[in-house]
Write a protein that binds this DNA or RNA. Structure first.
Lengths: 174, 174
DNA sequence: GTATTTGCAAAAGCTTTGCTGCAAC
DNA sequence: GTTGCAGCAAAGCTTTTGCAAATAC
C-alpha cells in the first residue's frame, strides 16, 4: 500500500487557477480577414457583428466567449451572449475560426482563434499555464501523409500538446 | 448580396445526428493495462472501479462518460455517474487515459481512450461522422521538434483533424 | 478506528434555444 | 413585406461537489 497518496489527488482535481492565464507571447501568424470573408459571402454586417469581428480579429490572446462578450460590451452595451455565440457559430460554419480547448487548463470553455494561413499547434504547460504556439513544416507533411495514407481531406487541424514548458522544465530539473 | 444562404446555416448549427456514430474500424494500438498500472501505484481497486476499468480497457469504440456509465450499470446496478467521473479523474491524473473531443461532432462531451504505446491522431469526418485513427512516425518527429525548438516537454498529445473521409470525398467528387 | 469510496441530490459552468420585437433590404 | 438579427429568459447538457452513509484495511 505504499505509493501515491491517492487522496491527495483530490486537491488538484479541479483545474488550477493559473498565474499566467493569458500568456501568448509568440508572434501570431497571418490572419485572414473575418470582415472581408464574411462580406464576400454575402453575410450582413451589423454594428454588433462588426464589433465582435474586430475583437476576435485583433485579439492578442486566446479569447473565450465570455471574454469576447466582456470586451464587446464596452462598445455595444446591450450586446447579449447569445449574439456572441451566434456570431461564433457563423464563423465556425465558414471555417474562419478554429476552436480550441487549450487542454482544459482553465475549464471546459472554448477559445477562438482566427484561422491562420499556416497551421500551428498549441503547447499548454500544465505547470504554469502558459500557452505557446508553434509552427513547423512537419504539420504540412502530416496533412500530406494523412491524405496519402487515408485519403482523408483535412479541413480543420487541432493540435494541442500538454506538458511542461522550457521554464518549468528548468525549474524542476527536467 | 448573392452568396451563401446564411439563414440555412441555422439548420445545421446543431451537430448532426450521425449514422455511423460509433465507427472505429481501424486496428487499435497496444494499450497499457489500467488495472496493473493503478495497482502498482497503490490505488485501491473496488468492485466498481474494476468494472469501470475493464469497460474502458476493452472498449472497441470511443466511449464518453454516459456510455461508460450505461455499460457499468449492467454489472453494478447502483453505480453512479459521480463514480464514473471520479474514476476517470483518477485515470487522467495518472495519465493513463487520453481525453478526446472528436471535433465535437456529437456535442461537448469527452471521450476516453486508454493511452497507447504509440501516439496516434484522430480523423473525424464532418460528413458521415466516422472516426479513424492514424499513426505515423511523423508524430514522434513532431514531438522531437517541439522539444528541440521550444524546449517543451510533451506529456499529452491531442491531435484531432476534421475533414472529409475517403468515402465521402469520393461521393462528392473531391 | 481511520481513511477512502460511494450514492444522492444539488449546483455549477458553458452553450443553446424559443420567442418576441426590431431592423435591414 | 419578407427575411434575418438581437435581447431576454429559460432550458439543456455535461461535469463537479458537499455531505452522510457505507466500505475497506
Amino acid at each position: 500500500m505504499v505509493g501515491y497518496p491517492v487522496s491527495l489527488l483530490r486537491l488538484c482535481r479541479r483545474r488550477p487557477i493559473l498565474t499566467s492565464e493569458k500568456t501568448q507571447e509568440t508572434p501570431t501568424f497571418e490572419r485572414r480577414s473575418l470582415l472581408n470573408e464574411l462580406t464576400t459571402k454575402g453575410v450582413r454586417i451589423t454594428a454588433k457583428r462588426r464589433a465582435l469581428l474586430e475583437i476576435i480579429q485583433n485579439a492578442t490572446e486566446h479569447l473565450d466567449a465570455a471574454a469576447i462578450l466582456e470586451e464587446a460590451q464596452k462598445r455595444e452595451p446591450n450586446i447579449d451572449r447569445a449574439t456572441v455565440y451566434r456570431t461564433i457559430d457563423l464563423l465556425k460554419k465558414f471555417r474562419l475560426v478554429d476552436e480550441l480547448d487549450l487542454m482544459h487548463l482553465n475549464g471546459e470553455k472554448h477559445y477562438y482563434e482566427v484561422k491562420t494561413r499556416r497551421d500551428h499547434l498549441h503547447l499548454a504547460c500544465f505547470q504554469c499555464g502558459r500557452i505557446e504556439e508553434f509552427a513547423t513544416p512537419l504539420l504540412e507533411e502530416l496533412k500530406a501523409e494523412i491524405s496519402r495514407q487515408k485519403g482523408f481531406h483535412s479541413e480543420v487541424v487541432r493540435l494541442e500538446v500538454g506538458g511542461r514548458c522550457h521554464l518549468c522544465s528548468e525549474s524542476t530539473g527536467m
